[in-house]
């Protein structure tokens, strides 16, 4: 579903992402892990077509993000780490705007909005302006907007931040369900326990370079993901201190 080949993105002289290559197959959930400033968000933005990159190639469903950006975006759902939505629109109008952009017909969008609003317990608040939403409600709305066009490939940057436990569980269930139906999920997180339990695959980035990537079992071996992560980062887990 996702194939990244030699992705490089520079800011001035600094290589935020340096020759990163990665593949995610259909049915896989891939966790993307790294310190703050490691290059996770830059790589994610490049995958979603939000950020232009200097070299390399990114393919989604076999289509090049560089050459066929619209086709790639049609397959993809993206939720950023801090969803700044249109504050001036009510929640329902924001969802309708996204549905219009993705060309979802009126009947189908109504069904999906109803379905996801019930799942995320946001129905009663849909008429309120986004400016009145809490961070968690904005996150839920962003997730609903991402799901409204039934994407095959979902890219989430820190999707669980701000969500209540029930909504977090819902998101994890949706991610698994999408993958079971032939989709794929690529998400970043700092919560290693979540990544360990949820992901089929894990990719660890450090200083813009991919330092570990593979099936969870292979990367983790006999250790925990946390131990592997700190070993790669060259730091103790704190347990030895």
């Amino acid at each position: 579903m996702l194939k990244i080949e030699g992705l490089t993105k520079k800011y001035g002289d600094k290589r935020a992402v340096d020759d990163l290559s990665l593949q995610i197959a259909q049915g896989e959930i891939c966790g993307f892990i790294g310190h703050n400033g490691a290059g996770k968000t830059t790589a994610i933005k490049a995958v979603c077509g939000v950020l232009r990159f200097d070299s390399g190639e990114i393919y989604i469903g076999g289509q090049s993000v560089k050459k066929e950006p619209m086709a790639c975006k049609r397959m993809t759902a993206y939720v950023p780490d801090n969803p700044d939505l249109y504050d001036f629109l009510p929640g329902i109008k924001y969802l309708n705007f996204i549905a219009d952009v993705y060309g979802i017909d009126a009947g189908e969008r109504r069904r999906r909005i109803h379905q996801y609003a019930e799942i995320f317990e946001l129905t009663a608040d849909l008429a309120a302006p986004v400016s009145a939403y809490s961070h968690g409600m904005k996150q839920k709305l962003a997730l609903m907007a991402a799901l409204i066009h039934e994407p095959r490939f979902m890219v989430f940057d820190e999707p669980f931040v701000g969500l209540d436990p029930k909504a977090s569980r819902t998101v994890k269930d949706i991610m698994r369900q999408k993958c079971d139906n032939g989709g794929a999920v690529f998400f970043s997180t700092h919560v290693l326990e979540v990544a360990e339990k949820l992901c089929d695959k894990v990719a660890i980035i450090k200083g813009g370079k991919l330092v570990a990537c593979g099936d969870m079992e292979t990367v983790r071996g006999d250790s925990s993901l946390e131990e592997v992560f700190f070993e790669i980062e060259g730091e103790g887990t704190g347990a030895d201190d």
Partner: peptide, 19 residues
């Protein structure tokens, strides 16, 4: 005052019209 949401049919628009 909280605005109560009432589900209603909305006509689909083109991407340009939505923007």
């Amino acid at each position: 005052a909280k605005i109560v949401y009432r589900e209603k049919q909305v006509a689909a628009k083109s991407a340009l019209s939505a923007l």
